[in-house]
Design a protein around this nucleic acid. Sequence first.
DNA 1: GTTGTTTGTTCTTCTTCCGGACGAATCCCG
DNA 2: CGGGATTCGTCCGGAAGAAGAACAAACAAC
Lengths: 387, 387
Amino acid sequence: MATTSSLERLRETNRRSITTLLAAEGPMSRADLVRGTGLSRTTVSSLVGDLIASGHVVETADRGRPHKGGSGRPPLLVALSTPGGAVAGVDVGHGHVRVAVADRVGTVLAEEIADMDVDEDGTHALDRAARMVREALAAAGLEPGDLHAVGMCVPAPLDRRSASIQTGILRGWRELSPADELRRRLGVPVFADNDANLGALAELGQGAARGASDLVYVKVASGLGAGIVLGGRLHRGSTGIAGELGHVQVDEHGQVCRCGNRGCLETLVSAPRLVALLQPAYDVPLSIERILALDDAGDAGVRRVLSDAGRAIGRALADLCNNLNPERVVVGGSLGASPSLGAGIRAAVDRFAQPDTAAALTVVSGDLGDRAEVVGAVSLAIARVSV
Amino acid sequence: MATTSSLERLRETNRRSITTLLAAEGPMSRADLVRGTGLSRTTVSSLVGDLIASGHVVETADRGRPHKGGSGRPPLLVALSTPGGAVAGVDVGHGHVRVAVADRVGTVLAEEIADMDVDEDGTHALDRAARMVREALAAAGLEPGDLHAVGMCVPAPLDRRSASIQTGILRGWRELSPADELRRRLGVPVFADNDANLGALAELGQGAARGASDLVYVKVASGLGAGIVLGGRLHRGSTGIAGELGHVQVDEHGQVCRCGNRGCLETLVSAPRLVALLQPAYDVPLSIERILALDDAGDAGVRRVLSDAGRAIGRALADLCNNLNPERVVVGGSLGASPSLGAGIRAAVDRFAQPDTAAALTVVSGDLGDRAEVVGAVSLAIARVSV
DNA sequence: GTTGTTTGTTCTTCTTCCGGACGAATCCCG
DNA sequence: CGGGATTCGTCCGGAAGAAGAACAAACAAC
């Protein structure tokens, strides 16, 4: 299948292990790379030489310190060169589009947000997203031609094969392949995934789950979804629709859900639902931000509602954790930062999961907040763009 | 970390890809290996030469047919040689111990079963198991010294680090490391895992889940557990206690479970529980076998109870499948063959899982029945014994 | 200045793989 | 019955990669 020879593949593998090490740990000397990869000095030297020649790596101006003690020749540091060009991440939510343009090591150069109703008209949302990518590129002082790839997330499961949205969750998007559509508009490769998956990837790589290998990322926002990382890799399921925590049925006689079932967890717990639940008791129009502020201020009603919501999530999550025994749960999404919500989740997990499972588990809020998805989208673009 | 050189590792990898291909597809020609591995004729020839020299592979007496058409030189077939010696699998259940002795390609040579109450006294059960292994070895015409390794399963989660049983599920086994205990008795390496995990491994390799990569194996027997295979690999969780499907809480006010929680699925659905539920309505003492026969015969009470049990399992399974999106569910354990149980599971999964998830999923009974665990234990022993 | 340590490169050797050429074994066809 | 045609397996030469030995470079400590 692969036309390249095994030896070429071996060298390719070794090159990759150097670049990934550099990506993970930042600039380091060849000697450090020797220690990190287990390859010989000679081989590392030769590989780094290749990488410098091909422009993927540069020798930095400053020197480091020798490995042991202060004695010895100071090493020359090498670092991943910021390859020319940029990538973009696009986060399409139910109520917003967020775009980030980053260089090819993941440093975000420009970011844009727009509120809009995405559900009804996929075409319009994609037009808008494409325009925002171009604007963000310009804001970062880049040309349209600098863009190499785009990662995007959509707030719905994506069928693995057709890469299109199958379920009825997004009304205006049925049978649409968001990646193809955006590629047509921008003229570069576009890679799409589900929002919770990319949030998980972001928290795993740069957020609250750094270093974890079995992780459940729960996104509490307009919808409720989970991104599941097992063994350090995203689990997408056989047809790519894993992580539908929000469509676990919690009330057989509950409200009909947009997914077609009834009584889904998402019908009880989601940002709009909680706003609607709280609004009657308050004189001012509530927003997520205001609710979070009230939570911090100790407002009893808000605390109660968020804590109940957390317990409902935790109840479903406990079952999942009994089955998966993850080491960490990261709560993200617009409501992920709420302490009451987190406490509710923690309480329900402790209550309903097996004691050993609960003991092996930490529940934390995401570090990246609303930006998790777009950061994950950037990571996806970087991971997929050819090296 | 690895002291071997990259080149040696490369050759090792290629050797492995040949042996795994031979293990998966049986005897085949070098030309087939070329097509299967993508390596060159020369390389395959050389690797096979090495493997023959080292005794891992033999040239069979009979020849095969050429690849295309009938023309061409008939190939020489090579096959994994049956290395000297044997391995054993030990299945410790709540009410039985089953032992199998197999050659080192997994062909079972002798098997023994004994009914016993395992829970109360782990030491006694292990004594008995060791004796049965020796007897089975003798029955297969082998010497005690021929035994290379043992795989075993225990009906409880095993802590990954201490390899001991932490939870209170097995009263007489607390803090015991079954693998160490059995190793002391038999003098060979013993590898232990949970029963559902090994059942999953068996059905994956040689049973109803062959070729699947995302699989949930549900074991319905004295207890209720799940073995979860994702991406072709067993998922054990961060501390090794994944798959506790039986301890999902289904009734907040339910019976207290031996795990310490209350209302666990296992308190409603397990073989002893179902027997107890049915017994009052029948004059003869019921056993699992009799219940299965009544099910086949169309007995209304049995069908109703098994179907209800299936639906209860399916309800919990649907939540798990929403989150994992597996391609197959295999129902095993002593009750796994019941059509009513299977139909109940299928119905509840269809009812409670998301439509797309349910559509991507097939629910089948295990091929291996009661023997799944012991077959999996043999596989574990073979996989872990040094090649 | 001398010694010791760490770093990085060059040169050589060894391993591994691949492509082409060649013999082997069988079938097909005249 | 004999000559292609075809597939299988091996031998040979060559290319690519990695490791080890030797050596130059750069600094600290004495």
